[in-house]
Design a protein around this nucleic acid. Sequence first.
DNA 1: TATTGTTATACTCTATAACTATA
DNA 2: TATAGTTATAGAGTATAACAATA
Lengths: 156, 156
Amino acid sequence: MGERKPDDKQLVLREFFPYRLAVFSNDVSRAVAQLYGGRFQLSRSEWRVLAALGDSSGLSAKEIADYSTLEKMQVSRATSALLKAGLIEREEDERDRRHLRHRLSKKGRSLYQELIPLVRARQDYMLSALSDEERTQLDELIERIHAKALELQQWG
Amino acid sequence: MGERKPDDKQLVLREFFPYRLAVFSNDVSRAVAQLYGGRFQLSRSEWRVLAALGDSSGLSAKEIADYSTLEKMQVSRATSALLKAGLIEREEDERDRRHLRHRLSKKGRSLYQELIPLVRARQDYMLSALSDEERTQLDELIERIHAKALELQQWG
DNA sequence: TATTGTTATACTCTATAACTATA
DNA sequence: TATAGTTATAGAGTATAACAATA
């Protein structure tokens, strides 16, 4: 890809995969965050919690964390903020009072229904650069590298 | 890919491209950050500045920013920390004293040369999941989506 | 004892803007 | 006046750990 022969002692940042990927992912995230962060004033954690509850109502904090790849602490902060904003409601699970069951409020559901089509439209616009076949291919390539990355992470 | 038919009113987070990409990119970054963040105690900004100067010596702060996709402010903080740690040196450009020319110190060069092979090895391990052809394909697919993401970002 | 959820702490990242010095 | 770089500030992300309530 370049004027320079890659060797073991040197690294050209713009050709380094983790760097390219981080820049790419940030730009994709920013394109979506402009929506939920702009007019709707949601943080990324809050957006993910809203998306989790829009998809499956009645989740506990831990289930929201699993759904959204957030730490339980981030979920706790996000649910506090969303409660305060009146976008969600919650109540204790009668059968195990350690669990809090969360769901969207009427206001939250209405925001969700306004936001989702906008967010999907941006995703679809970005993916319109690819054919259906290419999208499947991309998914598969990503999954294979992801598995290797998780291996490395676990080895420490 | 799913038990649920995608529609316009609902969104399943784990099937949403920007979310999947963010999780993927974070895991790839973490696999590399374990190296420079662990034994070498570098932040991500510091690692990028080190990589910039290891590749091209004598850069100004602005040139480092352009090279590394960092804000000039992050560069300023990173160079301060790297100076304090004795990993870089700098001096005024004689022809324009607004510019500071940065380079790795002997200690910084030695750290760079120790770090780069480790970092490359992790990249190569992750990419070993793909054939050469697939890597080229992945690069191309990413670039096409990236261009769309930048369009959206600029529109606001 | 283990689990759910909250709170505390500390460091990093991101974004904006004011400020200085040089040109 | 424009540019290079520093500093200040505030909000958000990340990681660890202590803690209370419940099981």
